[in-house]
C-alpha cells in the first residue's frame, strides 16, 4: 500500500502552503514545501527541520481578512434572517392572527357537533351561542354584501352567510344612533360584511364569523377592526361563493322564508 503515503504527503504540502500565505518568509515556505514533497522513505530525514515550521504555522494566520469575512457573513446572515423572519411572520395563517386578539372565543377548536353542523334545515332552529357562530341553517343565506339591517334578522339565514365567509356585526337593540353609525362605517360598501341589531345581546357589540366570536361594549374597540381584517372572506368554508343573492328582509325565519334568493349551498 504505497498510495496512502503520496496521498497524504501532498495534502500536507497544501496545508503548509496555506499556512505560508501570511507573514512567514519565502525561505521557510519553500522549506516546508520541500519537506512535505519528499518521498515517504525520505520523510524521516525531514525530522531535522521540524522545530522551525510549527512557529510559522501558528504565526501565519492573518486575522484581518478573517474578521472582514466574518463581519460580512454576520451582516448577510442578519439581513437574510430578518427577511425570512418577516416572510414567515407575514405568512402566518389568519387563524393564528385571530387567536392573538384578546377576548376572541374560538368555537372551531371546541369541536361542538352542534356548532360544526352545516346541513340545511327549514323553520326555526336553536343555536348553542347567542348570537350563533355556526350550525345547521336555512337554505337561503342572508344577503351579506355590505348590508346594514335596521331590525333583527333571522339567525337561520345569518349563519348561512357566516358559512360563506361573511363577518356579522350585531349590536344590542336600542344602542345609541351615533354608536350604531360607527359600526355602520365598518360595513357600508364592504362585501362579506353585514350588520343587524340583536335581541337580548349581553354586550353592546358582538362580531362573529363561522366559529369565532368577539364581544365588547365599546364600538370603537380596535379589536373589532382587527377581527374583521383577520377573518373577513378568509373564514369562508366555501371560498369563492358570493355574498349576494340572499334574503334581504328582516324578521324571523318564518316571515323571511319567502324572500328572494338562491337556495344553493
Amino acid at each position: 500500500m504505497s498510495t496512502p503515503g503520496p496521498e497524504r504527503v501532498p495534502s500536507s504540502v497544501k496545508v503548509g502552503k496555506t499556512s505560508g500565505q501570511g507573514k512567514p518568509p519565502t525561505a521557510a515556505k519553500s522549506a516546508a514545501a520541500k519537506s512535505g514533497g519528499n518521498r515517504p522513505g525520505a520523510a524521516k530525514g525531514g525530522k531535522g527541520r521540524k522545530p522551525v515550521t510549527p512557529v510559522k504555522v501558528s504565526g501565519g494566520r492573518s486575522w484581518g481578512p478573517i474578521a472582514v469575512i466574518g463581519l460580512v457573513a454576520v451582516i448577510a446572515l442578519g439581513i437574510i434572517g430578518f427577511g425570512v423572519f418577516s416572510v414567515v411572520r407575514g405568512s402566518r395563517s389568519w387563524e393564528d392572527k385571530v387567536a392573538d386578539i384578546q377576548g376572541v372565543v374560538n368555537y372551531r377548536a371546541q369541536k361542538n357537533a352542534q356548532i360544526d353542523a352545516r346541513d340545511h334545515k327549514d323553520g326555526t332552529l336553536t343555536y348553542v351561542t347567542s348570537p350563533p357562530v355556526g350550525g345547521a341553517h336555512n337554505a337561503t343565506p342572508q344577503n351579506c354584501n355590505g348590508d346594514v339591517y335596521d331590525a333583527p334578522i333571522a339567525n337561520e339565514h345569518a349563519v348561512h352567510s357566516l358559512e360563506h365567509g361573511a363577518v356579522w356585526i350585531t349590536y344590542k337593540q336600542g344602542l345609541a344612533a351615533d354608536q350604531v353609525a360607527v359600526l355602520q362605517k365598518k360595513v357600508e360598501g364592504k362585501d362579506y360584511t353585514f350588520m343587524s341589531p340583536y335581541a337580548g345581546l349581553d354586550k353592546n357589540v358582538s362580531v362573529q364569523v363561522w366559529g369565532y366570536q368577539l364581544k365588547t361594549d365599546d364600538v370603537n374597540d380596535s379589536r373589532i377592526d382587527e377581527f374583521i381584517k383577520d377573518t373577513r372572506i378568509l373564514a369562508a368554508l366555501e371560498p369563492g361563493i358570493s355574498c349576494s343573492g340572499g334574503n334581504t328582509t328582516t324578521g324571523p325565519v318564518t316571515a323571511a322564508a319567502t324572500g328572494t334568493g338562491m337556495t344553493g349551498s
Partner: peptide
C-alpha cells in the same frame, strides 16, 4: 513494510507540519 513506511511518512508529515491531525 510499505504500510509501516507510509505510517512513518504520515507521522513525519504530521510532525513536520506541527499538529496536522488537528488541522485536518
Amino acid at each position: 513494510t510499505v504500510s509501516t513506511d507510509s505510517d512513518a511518512a504520515a507521522e513525519a508529515a504530521a510532525s513536520v507540519n506541527g499538529n496536522r491531525p488537528g488541522r485536518a
